[in-house]
Write a protein that binds this DNA or RNA. Structure first.
Length: 182
DNA sequence: CTTTCGATGATCT
DNA sequence: GATCATCGAAAGG
């Protein structure tokens, strides 16, 4: 079983819910994602390729990492046809692997605060610019399929002002680890 | 419980 | 010079 990263970001974002994402063995189950596409005003790729978003136009199945608000990192999974400028933002995980490491990196104990939100996910998993453009199917990354099928809820994206009405946010129904209620 | 606001710096206009 | 795909602390109800 594998994710087909050639699919559209909406399809990939939906498919990723329930998969386990690890970086150097640390991480958890993906419970919240958002899709971003080229003809999407909210997307970094909307105005074409720049130095920052170059990885977004790279090979599907690679990482796009950017700095947010000058102090957080955010992790995206590039998808769509090569050079399409589409990606899925990983917004929240349910912590499962390397919890002690994540607690140290985050400086908090509560599982609830470890990986709920894109900035927190990146900090807990040790994601930074050095992973930008790297393939997701080999170390330090690891992606493994869900054990059991889970229901997925759909809503609008978070923290954007443009194209804010697109229902491009996906979450595991009933998860206690969402960045915001869906 | 909810809302507001400061931090902080790369990126783009 | 303005804008941010955020977080956390503080203030207000």
């Amino acid at each position: 079983m594998h994710i087909d990263f050639l699919q559209s970001p909406v399809v990939v974002a939906r498919s990723l819910i329930g998969w386990t994402l690890l970086v150097n063995g640390v991480g958890g189950v993906i419970v919240e994602t958002e899709a971003y596409d080229m003809d999407d005003e909210a997307s970094h790729s909307f105005r074409g390729m720049t130095a920052r978003n170059a990885a977004m136009f790279g090979e599907p199945g690679t990482a796009y990492v950017y700095r947010s608000y000058g102090l957080h990192w955010c992790l995206n999974l590039v998808c769509g046809p090569s050079g399409h400028g589409a990606a899925v933002l990983v917004r929240a995980l349910e912590p499962t692997n390397g919890i002690d490491t994540m607690q140290q990196r985050r400086g908090v104990q509560a599982l609830r605060l470890l990986t709920t939100g894109p900035g927190r996910v990146a900090q807990a998993l040790g994601v930074d610019r050095s992973l930008d453009g790297l393939p997701l199917d080999r170390p330090p990354f690891a992606l493994s399929p869900p054990g059991v099928a889970r229901a997925v809820s759909i809503g609008v994206r978070v923290g954007i002002t443009k194209a804010a009405d697109r229902p491009w946010r996906f979450a595991m129904t009933g998860s206690a680890h969402l960045s915001r209620k869906l």
